[in-house]
Design a binder for these strands. Structure first.
Lengths: 107, 107
DNA sequence: CCTTACCTTCGACGACCATCGAAAGAGCCG
DNA sequence: CGGCTCTTTCGATGGTCGTCGAAGGTAAGG
């Protein structure tokens, strides 16, 4: 039995993003840390984020962000690379992600 | 026993608003309708919002918005008037509330 | 004083959420 | 093949959320 390849990641279209879903995805401290980290470093592997939660919990947060359209992920070998969908977000909700990212942490 | 007057409403300072709390307050369809209605009409009584939930549920949503610093409420006679804290929000999170309000409903 | 209007609080209920550990899949390398 | 790394899925758990109805309290007016 041949090994099945990784199932392709699903990402919502840029034009179909839901405001409530995006706001909900951003309304969590851990996910906000992920988004802020991604702004500084455009592409990171999953295991390299400065968050203190279990790997399975981190995977859950990536799924929430991905299904809301906040991040895009692609597989390369053993790693899953993550990027911010900055242009898509700004086209759909102009100024929103900039306003969120302009606020420093711990405030 | 004399009747006790209405307890004063508590509102967080403009400088102490939490980004996560504001995003969470906005990440709900009913509360988003309240905020959008308030943009068109600067001051409304609680019972005059075009939402289809029970009065007790509406009261709950007002509390979430008020404690996050999104709205301000004042009592006058029997009615409770609600306003958007637009200036406070824009001073604390520049562009955020504008970006949210720029997105039309049902999108 | 009694009634009506307005809004809130309380208690309850079902749904969802953030979190974890255990297990497993896919890829890479010796 | 065998082991190691990276990441996900599954099941469970404790907590929070949105919702409602019932009850209550304040205000205004007959």
């Amino acid at each position: 039995m041949p090994a099945t390849p990784r199932p392709p990641l699903v990402h919502p279209d840029a034009s179909s993003l839901s405001l409530v879903a995006v706001l909900h995805a951003l309304a969590d401290p851990t996910r906000l840390t992920i988004v802020r980290t991604l702004r500084a470093d455009p592409e990171r592997a999953c295991g390299t984020f400065p968050v203190s939660v279990a790997p399975s919990t981190l995977s859950h947060h990536f799924r929430v962000l991905r299904e809301a359209g906040v991040i895009r992920q692609r597989d390369e070998g053993n790693r899953r690379w993550t990027t911010l969908r900055l242009a898509d977000l700004d086209a759909r909700f102009p100024g929103l992600i900039d306003a969120v990212l302009a606020t420093p942490p711990d405030e």
